[in-house]
Write a protein that binds this DNA or RNA. Structure first.
Lengths: 96, 96
DNA sequence: TGAATAATTGAGCAGGTGTTCATATATTAT
DNA sequence: ATAATATATGAACACCTGCTCAATTATTCA
């Protein structure tokens, strides 16, 4: 299966969305429900700044969508395709 | 879906296997057929050293298997699960 | 044996990534 | 207005990655 360099880069970028444990955990929490930055930070035991930085990246990749309500910002998954990748990957890790 | 830190790390590691354009292209070639290091290097227009370094990583992740024949080493995919991830990702990149 | 070929390996380096820390912005409450 | 809260942002830093280059190993051929 020959692959153009462009598609290889796009494919690599897609998988890069899930190649960090912090991002994987963020995605895993957002699968269940919408969450604010501070709720994510608490659930993941990460600083709000670190979470915010990661969310920024996920936002730029269009994997996550932000909804502002008062001074909180709630995040949800924007791309269900990534959830499928996540599930397939988890399945592989769990029953190998 | 709560995720332990260990599983998050394992999941991230799995996706890290495909988060680089060179590796994606290596996988894409190996989907079709077994290939030697030099054939891969030529097909990808990469140095044999660079290809070999990447293959080492893929080997350590058990995604690729080596078979020695004379002074050549032929590589094949060892893990069909990764092919599924690859295909699903490619599908996403190609049609929406 | 020595030369040539195929692949591997280690060092070194440039570029990228994820965190912390400090600061800035936006919104709400007093 | 000021203070407090929620998030975002930029700089700095440590760590990781993927490449090149040089050297090494293993195999074949003359």
């Amino acid at each position: 299966m020959k692959l153009t360099e462009l598609k290889a880069i796009q494919l690599a970028a897609l998988f890069s969305a899930l190649n960090d444990a912090s991002r994987v955990r963020i995605i895993s929490l957002l699968i269940d429900c919408e969450m604010s930055v501070s709720a994510l930070a608490e659930g993941l035991k990460m600083s709000e700044s670190a979470v915010s930085h990661q969310l920024r990246g996920l936002r730029q990749m269009r994997l996550v969508r932000a909804r502002k309500e008062g001074r909180q910002v709630f995040y949800t998954l924007d791309d269900d395709h990534v959830v499928k990748l996540y599930s397939m990957g988890l399945d592989h890790v769990e029953h190998g």
